[in-house]
Amino acid sequence: MANPHFAFTKKNYVLMLIGLGIIILGFTIIGLDKEPHGFGVLGTVLGPIVTLAGFLFQFYAIFHKTENK
Rank of each mutant, 00 (worst) to 15 (best):
E35Y: 12
V50S: 02
F39E: 15
G38V: 11
F6P: 00
K65S: 01
T51P: 00
K10C: 03
V41E: 04
L20W: 12
A53W: 00
L46P: 05
T9Y: 14
I22C: 02
F8N: 00
G43Q: 10
L25E: 03
P48Q: 13
M1W: 03
V50K: 09
F39T: 11
P36S: 06
P48V: 07
Q58N: 08
V50H: 03
V41K: 10
K11I: 13
Q58M: 15
K10W: 15
V50T: 13
I18D: 02
H37L: 14
H37R: 13
G43F: 07
F55M: 10
G31R: 05
V45K: 11
H5T: 12
K65R: 04
K11R: 14
L25D: 00
G38W: 12
A7L: 15
K34A: 15
T9S: 15
H5G: 04
G31S: 12
P36H: 06
I24M: 11
N3P: 03
L42I: 09
G31V: 01
K69I: 13
N68S: 06
E35L: 11
N12V: 05
Y13Q: 10
F57R: 01
G47F: 05
H64S: 13
E35G: 05
F6V: 02
Y60A: 07
N68G: 08
E35T: 12
I29E: 04
F55T: 05
G43W: 03
H5N: 09
V50Y: 06
L32A: 14
F59I: 08
F8K: 04
I18N: 03
V14I: 14
A2N: 10
H37S: 13
T28L: 15
T44A: 11
N3Y: 09
L32R: 14
A61R: 06
I22T: 09
T28W: 07
I62K: 00
P4A: 04
A7M: 14
T44L: 14
G21C: 11
T66I: 03
L25Q: 07
G38D: 08
E67P: 08
V50A: 04
Y60Q: 00
